[in-house]
Design a protein around this nucleic acid. Structure first.
Lengths: 212, 212
DNA sequence: CGTACATTTGACATCCTTCAAAATGAGTGG
DNA sequence: CCACTCATTTTGAAGGATGTCAAATGTACG
């Protein structure tokens, strides 16, 4: 899934371990490295003047972060769980790119994939109801945790309700209510607070407005 | 602003003229060309199953479209006004990229810029009230029409209220009401329906929650 | 077992949407 | 130049969905 060139590069770099709820970098910090998540879950987020958080993306193993063309980060990065990261200096990246054109091609591709995700989020927030957003989110998690190919019915939620709300433009209470509603309508089951079982995927897809 | 390499390439390609409210390509169409807007205003949009439109971006002169790593478009492109476009075949692009690594670097950069815009939109829709969204939108237009450097106080609106609503996740009525409210509070003036004058930029920035 | 935090639930307020109608403006023909 | 028509925008009234505030329940950890 991840471009081999970039994987090679970060694997030659340093390994970094962070605990849950640590900040890797913040908005405005100078850009130095390109990172790749090896283990754990992270978020990329932006804060408003009034202190509200908008999560732009959840990052899972194989995802890159630190991609930018600016000198400082426009997003902050925090861990949700304990994480292992691989990182390579941007300078080393540029150096490698001089005689290997596939580096920039790979960067384009990774950026493009991030853009696809961002547009998906825009669409979800802009056009869907609260239940629709949660349904879409669950289907997305199922897709990701199934390795992009075989959606899992059994999902783990490494993020809290607040994180989900900050991602989908909802309050924590609305998120909770939507979970309850989806449970009551038989779409999902909630064995524990951080685990979701997709019971009726078709109904969930209908709720998410992604039916064929 | 736009990378010279890509500008050169599209300038060597064909020129295309479209009237207002024409479709250049739709979601699912096979990707063949990379385009650059020379004149006019366009939109990139995606439709939901239920037929609702989410505009992902407004495109102005100098903007590129048709950037993708897939075989088919994930967005549709329509003109709002009469447009002149430059285009180059993706095959020609790949060919050029073989011996010119700056092509892919430029593509990364253009994709990144699009991504920045997409995240800005996510943030606007996810975290701001209706008035805040309109205020942000006007400041964005001012920025764009002032050539990214000197924001204009006199803005033209090549798009209708429906388009603005489809961009910001609002209904046409709410858009109209927000314009009225911003007018009543002295932030803006509306000489005509398709023209906005920024009277009190600071107040507008406050309304948009982008105050320093 | 008890404390602290996260989640869920409830009651109410608010903002935005929906539905409906009036006003404005652009284009056309008399 | 004016009257007419159609589309767009604006305004109004009412309803609904989500946010806010507050309390109860559940869960993890010492």
């Amino acid at each position: 899934m991840a471009p081999p060139v970039l994987l090679d590069l970060v694997q030659q770099g340093e390994t970094l371990t962070l605990n849950a709820h640590e900040t890797l970098f913040s908005e405005g910090d100078p850009v130095q490295h390109l990172y790749c998540v090896a283990e754990g879950t992270m978020v990329l987020s932006r804060y408003s003047v009034s202190g509200e958080r908008q999560i732009m993306a959840f990052l899972f193993p194989g995802d890159f972060l630190g991609i930018t063309f600016e000198k400082t980060f426009s997003l902050g990065a925090e861990t949700l769980t304990k994480c292992i990261l691989l990182r390579v200096d941007h300078a080393a990246l540029d150096e490698k790119a001089v005689d290997d054109p596939s580096v920039w091609r790979a960067m384009s591709e990774v950026t493009w994939r991030f853009l696809r995700g961002s547009m998906e989020l825009t669409f979800t927030i802009g056009r869907k109801s609260a239940v629709g957003r949660i349904a879409s989110f669950l289907l997305y998690l199922s897709f990701r945790q199934g390795g992009f190919t075989a959606p899992t019915a059994d999902i783990s939620l490494p993020m809290g309700r607040q994180d989900i709300g900050d991602f989908l433009g909802l309050t924590i209470e609305t998120v909770s209510r939507c979970f309850t509603k989806l449970k009551e309508t038989g779409c999902i089951a909630l064995p524990t607070t951080d685990r979701v079982e997709l019971v009726d995927v078709e109904a969930l897809r209908t709720a998410a407005d992604v039916v064929d």
